[in-house]
Design a protein around this nucleic acid. Structure first.
Lengths: 194, 194
DNA sequence: CGCGACGTTGATTTGCCTCAACGATTGTGG
DNA sequence: CCACAATCGTTGAGGCAAATCAACGTCGCG
């Protein structure tokens, strides 16, 4: 029951037996993060990889000028981590914050390596997941380059309406790469047009 | 000999026997692309994944306004493909052009699946490669958001000097997401400052 | 209640784009 | 090999999208 969502998610990308699924799930430890609490703070080592069972997170970084830059949001069914820190044992550049009371399933780096060995198809699973992620990042770059801020905002709202409803305008603007003041002006223009 | 660079590249990410390396390499077919020729054109199906043995390529898309948008350059030792088209059997949105006379090693989608089965560690190889790519895409997004055009240009020149020397200013500007006129003005400013 | 974070609005500035013109370089066909 | 075309890099004038700065009312929360 507590692992149902994770199992569904895995079965979308690879074919696995129920037995394998159980072995995989046993490697993950449930954890709760209450609203506004941090799962990871810039400077720490990211020792986990996480799957969101419930709730919503924001993954962001703060640059030298103090501006927040949101890489992505992770709602129910999404994966979560600072891949750079996790893979390279480097201090994290990212912050991960719960936007509401949330539950995640965590796996440590050493357990992940054990899991790869015990259930080799997991290697395939993360290969496929990673490649899908690359496609998403490529598409986002192209959107950032050839769409205006207003078009990007509309695309985001249309694509992830359920996430948008959980976000403040400031969080949305930090994802789009614009200031919150300008986002406010975009929204006003939308209203007067309709 | 013709596969040495590929073998070196593989050994950086996974531990494999010489025998396995040979099996892997046998799946790849050498191919030559002469300067300015297209390895892939927008609208086609991307049926291959490629490794650059020699030369240099540009991967880009053309948007509705006719603007070219360069996703990345691939020089010797880099991988190359339209992942979206390759994975999802969808018509490609990307163009891949040789910037100089080049040689690549190509593998088809069906052969790739056979290779995964025959040499399972290849699954791990591409999992690791993909995750590294994700890290690179994330970093690029952050740079696009918090650096000015001038800073992005300097970062690019400092990070990939050997690639830059092969590129026209127009190609560089399409990678940075600015117009070539503005890049010209950036360069002039750099000169007068020093 | 009062404080801090939020969304809004306006005035001003700025980074970058657009358009147009020009000489320099490269490539190509006769 | 040259003539011509095409593409390139440069420069300027003007315009626009978005940032900056500052002020304000609102809301949730301790």
């Amino acid at each position: 029951m507590p692992y149902d969502l994770l199992k569904e998610n895995i079965k979308k990308d690879v074919t696995v037996s129920e037995l394998q699924l159980d072995v995989i799930c046993n490697y993950f430890e449930p954890s709760s993060v209450s609203k506004n609490n941090m799962l990871l703070v810039q400077g720490q080592l990211c020792k986990f990889e996480g799957f969101v069972k419930n709730g919503c997170f924001r993954v962001y970084t703060i640059d030298k000028k103090g501006n927040e830059n949101t890489l992505y949001f992770a709602a129910k069914g999404w994966w979560l981590m600072d891949l750079d820190s996790f893979m390279n044992h480097a201090p994290s550049v990212l912050n991960i914050q719960a936007l509401e009371d949330s539950e995640v399933l965590l796996i440590s780096k050493t357990d992940k390596e054990l899991l790869y060995r015990e259930v080799p198809v997991v290697e395939r699973l993360f290969r496929i997941m990673s490649q899908k992620a690359i496609i998403a990042w490529q598409r986002r770059l192209v959107r950032n380059h050839c769409l205006t801020a207003k078009e990007r905002y509309e695309h985001f709202v249309n694509t992830y309406p359920s996430i948008v409803s959980k976000l403040t305008d400031r969080q949305i603007s930090s994802y789009l790469g614009i200031t919150h003041e300008f986002l406010s002006k975009i929204k006003r223009k939308q209203l007067t047009e309709k």
